[in-house]
Amino acid sequence: MPLSERGIAEHDSLTPMKEREFRLLRELVQEHTGIWLQDGKRTMLAARLAKPVRRLGLPGFQSYYALLRESAEDSPEFVEFVNAITTNKTSFFRERHHFDYLAQKIVPEIKAASMRGGRKQIRVWSAACSTGEEVYSIALTLLDAVAEPGWWLEVVGSDIDTGVLETAQRAIYPAECLESIDELQRQRYFLQGKDSRAGQVKLKAEVTRMVELRRVNLMDERWAADGPFDVIFFRNALIYFQQDVQERFLRRMTGMLRPGGYLFIGNSEQIPWMHDRLEPLSQTMYRLRGSG
C-alpha cells in the first residue's frame, strides 16, 4: 500500500506543503493505518491530497489536517483521505510460485487429511487484496486443485481502501490483464465482454461466490476477518510499515492460522524475528511451528 508516482496531480494553486504539515499528516497516516511515510515522500503526499483539499474548498493542507482531526474514521472525508494515501499494485498470479505451492503441496496435504476423517474445507485470507486479482487467482487455484464436489472453498479478501474493494467486488478487468492465465482457465472462469464491455472480462459466478470481500484496517482492535485460515497471503505490504507494526500484525495473523497453516509474504520482504513462531520454507513462505 505504498505511495507512488502514479496519480501525482497539478496542485500549483495550493500553497506547497510545509515540512510541519507533512509531519502532522504523516503522523495521522501512521496513527490510523500503520503506514510510515519516509522523509522524502512530502511531494508525493501533497500531490495525492491536493484533490480532496480542492474538492472541500480548503485553503491548504493545515486546514485539511484540522478537518481530519475533527472527523470520524468512518466519515466520507476520512475514508477519502485513507483511499488517497494508499496505492495498490497487483496482477493475476503475481509471484506464481505461491500459487504453485498452494496447488501442489497445500491442497494435497489437506485432501490427504480429509481422507483420514478430517474436514473437507479450505479457507484462505488475502490480507491486502487490492483490486482483487490476488483473491481471484487464489480462487482459480483452489477450484482447479480440488476439482471434487463436496468441498467448501472460501477466500476472504480484505483491504483498507474502499475504492479497490469496489473494483474487486465488480470482478471486471481489462482483457489484457489475463496474460498470465492459460487459455483453459480463461474459457472456464471468465466471461468475455461485448458491445460497451468489449475488451473487458468478468469472473463467472462459480468463482465470485466463493469470495468474500471485507474492509479491514489492520490497526483496528477487531478485524472483520474470522479465522482460522489454512493460508494467509500478506504480500508486498509489510515494507510500508515499521518493524514494530509489522510484528504486531504478523503475530496476530499467525494466531488466526490453523495448526500447520501457512503464511506467504512478498518477494522483497523478510521477517527473521518471526522464526520463533514460523518455520521458513523459503524466503517468502512460512509454516506455523509446533503443529506437526
Rank of each mutant, 00 (worst) to 15 (best):
G7R: 04
G7I: 12
E10R: 11
S13T: 09
L14N: 08
L14S: 10
T15A: 12
P16E: 09
E19P: 11
Q30F: 14
Q30E: 09
W36G: 13
Q38I: 15
G40M: 03
K41T: 13
T43E: 13
A46K: 12
R48L: 12
V53H: 04
F61K: 12
Q62I: 15
R69V: 02
S71A: 12
A72V: 09
E73S: 14
P76N: 08
E77K: 14
F78L: 00
V82F: 09
V82A: 07
V82D: 07
T87A: 06
H97Y: 08
Y101K: 13
A103Q: 04
A103C: 04
Q104F: 00
K105Y: 08
P108V: 04
P108C: 02
I110W: 00
A112Y: 06
R119L: 14
R123N: 00
G132K: 03
Y136E: 01
L140V: 07
L142V: 03
L142P: 03
L143D: 01
V146N: 05
V146L: 04
G157K: 07
D159F: 07
E166A: 15
T167S: 12
T167M: 13
I172G: 09
C177R: 12
I181Q: 02
S196F: 15
V201T: 05
K202T: 00
R209E: 01
M210S: 08
V211M: 13
R214T: 11
R214Y: 00
V216G: 01
L218V: 14
M219H: 07
F229C: 01
Q242R: 08
G255P: 06
G261I: 05
L263V: 01
S268K: 13
E269H: 08
E269R: 10
I271G: 05
P272M: 05
S282G: 08
M285N: 04
G290A: 10
